[in-house]
Design a protein around this nucleic acid. Structure first.
Lengths: 191, 191
DNA sequence: TTACTTATTGAACAAGTGTTCAAGTTATTT
DNA sequence: AAATAACTTGAACACTTGTTCAATAAGTAA
């Protein structure tokens, strides 16, 4: 029976995400996807190509999710908050994990500039989404005119990366979730 | 001639830091340290033991640096700022890199809980240093009485991790350095 | 110098790695 | 049913990896 491509990508992503690109062995993938080496190579090319597919798919899903929350909320700041709360700073089995893109960039930093670029582009894409929403918020009078949407978007990325990185480093998820709210409070106060 | 242990650890750390634990091969280390496999194994045990030594050494150096800046500044907030500016959010060859401990935790997340713990402990140690300095700042009336030094220390770690992670993800070092100052400004304003 | 300890060398090894491909199986078309 | 195409299988291969160890060299003490 032919394999389920979407499911295979999903499972491969989970494994790459958890173990990293280099620590994930083809034999791990064979077991997880329940596919033999020949099938995997016929379907995806090779390990690096499969990883790239996972990276692009993850980035696309993230961007789609942001747009979803934007559509669900008339308040753009609330849209960003919901997106982050549900997609980014969220405990999985009591632990907050890093963004797959950020983790990949970190790992591939000194090794594979090629793969790294895809992850970088994905992050920039989400940042652009933030910027558009902050601009919309400004037009709606929700943040000050003197604030800079592009800069706020960068700041927001920094906050999310910080929270997730910290949550990943320590095992205290609840503190991090609280601090996310504090950060959003400071956003409303200062801008 | 006997090898220079401190220098070897320094060089190994740089390589591990740049490439990560798994991507750094023993043969890379042999070349970088200019030592043959037998010598490295006689001196450090094995790859994992050497990595652990690098991790602990890096953590110790970080903590010593924080104490150094604490001794140099009568203002504890300034001490933290100088430490971060000089040790953490600093462009190396135009690029801001991740903390060695944070990068290692991220990489070893799903693989090696044993090594991971050493990196985690090192981070907690720096956080404790921040907390002590924030407490001192509070006693000196530099931050509000209602502020919580322990929480501020966590927040500070989040900010540093966010800035470095973002600086590492994008290649724009100058923006990040500016945002560090903005973050310290917001600290003075709100607390 | 001689004897002894300590450190270095580099070829070799066993296990693990990503990947291939001829043979077999399942699906689709004629 | 027969022929063709599409997909799957798993043993095998070439290469890389961390690590070992007998032989050698360098340093130290008598």
């Amino acid at each position: 029976m032919k394999y389920d491509r979407a499911l295979a990508i999903e499972k491969a992503t989970q494994l790459f995400w958890k173990l990293g690109f280099q620590a994930t062995k083809m034999r791990d993938l064979q077991e997880e996807l329940d596919m033999r080496p020949g099938s995997i190579y016929a379907a995806f090319g090779n390990k690096e190509a499969l990883f790239k597919i996972c990276l692009l798919n993850y980035a696309e899903q993230s961007r789609l999710a942001l747009d979803k929350y934007a559509g669900l909320n008339s308040n753009p700041i609330k849209a960003i908050y919901d997106f982050i709360k549900n997609m980014a700073v969220k405990a999985e089995e009591g632990k907050i994990n890093n963004c797959f893109l950020v983790k990949s960039i970190s790992e591939l930093d000194g090794n594979n500039a090629h793969l790294r670029q895809y992850a970088q582009d994905g992050l920039k894409d989400v940042e652009s989404g933030f910027e558009a929403l902050f601009l919309e918020a400004q037009e709606k009078g929700l943040i000050k005119q003197e604030s800079n949407p592009a800069r706020l978007a960068k700041w927001m990325q920094i906050q999310v990366m910080g929270l997730r990185s910290y949550g990943n480093s320590q095992d205290n998820a609840s503190d991090v979730v609280i601090m996310l709210d504090e950060i959003f409070n400071s956003l409303k106060q200062a801008h």
